[in-house]
Design a protein around this nucleic acid. Sequence first.
RNA 1: UGACACCUUAUCGC
DNA 2: GCGATAAGGTGTCA
Lengths: 159, 159
Amino acid sequence: MAVVELYTDGAARGNPGRGGYGAILKWGAHEKEMSAGYKLTTNNRMELLAVIIGLEALTRDGCEVEVYSDSKYVVDAVKLGWVFGWQKKGFKDKANPDLWVRFLQVYKKHKVRMNWIRGHNDHPYNERCDVLATTAADGGNLLTDTGYLALQISSKGKS
Amino acid sequence: MAVVELYTDGAARGNPGRGGYGAILKWGAHEKEMSAGYKLTTNNRMELLAVIIGLEALTRDGCEVEVYSDSKYVVDAVKLGWVFGWQKKGFKDKANPDLWVRFLQVYKKHKVRMNWIRGHNDHPYNERCDVLATTAADGGNLLTDTGYLALQISSKGKS
RNA sequence: UGACACCUUAUCGC
DNA sequence: GCGATAAGGTGTCA
């Protein structure tokens, strides 16, 4: 089975603000582009969601996937094992538990390797993902990031 | 004592590149125009120098001065108090310390209010300052901005 | 304290 | 359409 490549990027105007993600799945000669925009979210949620959406688009289990992201938050969380520690402690005091739980679910179905690439490096797929993300963020039909909203409400409840 | 008005503008072709400043002091029915060109400088240095030259042209201390500039860099640095914070930290990692020190020296001699005006707003004095600045930049007899040169040399020394 | 990312504003330009 | 000169901030982690 061939290796699948997944390129991702996220954007959030204002941060927090209107945002979007872009993802490109590449296997053999095939490519699939994915993107969506959200009314109110954060840069890191979009960076992470881009990876999740990409992985969830795989139609078979057990794929060997090379993920490319410019987010240290996302790449190091997996590569350095942070997220597995967070999981053990129930994501106490850690951000975006909803997305990380969703990520781990799809992550364990495949052989995923995370790769960090510097942003704005004239890497064509990374640039394309940036365009997908920002175009989605700037477009109409914006979705509601209920996960972010829930976090906002719960933090307000705490204070 | 009447209020003095000071209109200013800066220009830099290429940025960094050949540049100039223009300043108009207006008190009562009197006006004084000032300008000069530099061989190699930046837009922001010229915007700031325009204000300095204007204030230094005041012949008495304690003047009430309304300064009009289209540079947020210059206006907000004073109006929002950034420059006083920079001063406390010795301008560490901040740009143009030579000019800001010179500015503060003359600034404290007067009652200065900074006003931001949008560029290209068909404000006659702002437009005249733009002409003064660009004409100076495009003319002969260009001066050497030793402050900018010093900064360039010291950054090269660091790398 | 550091790192990566996301931006926001203004001006100067090419 | 692009970049440089400058500043301010948040989202996240160690």
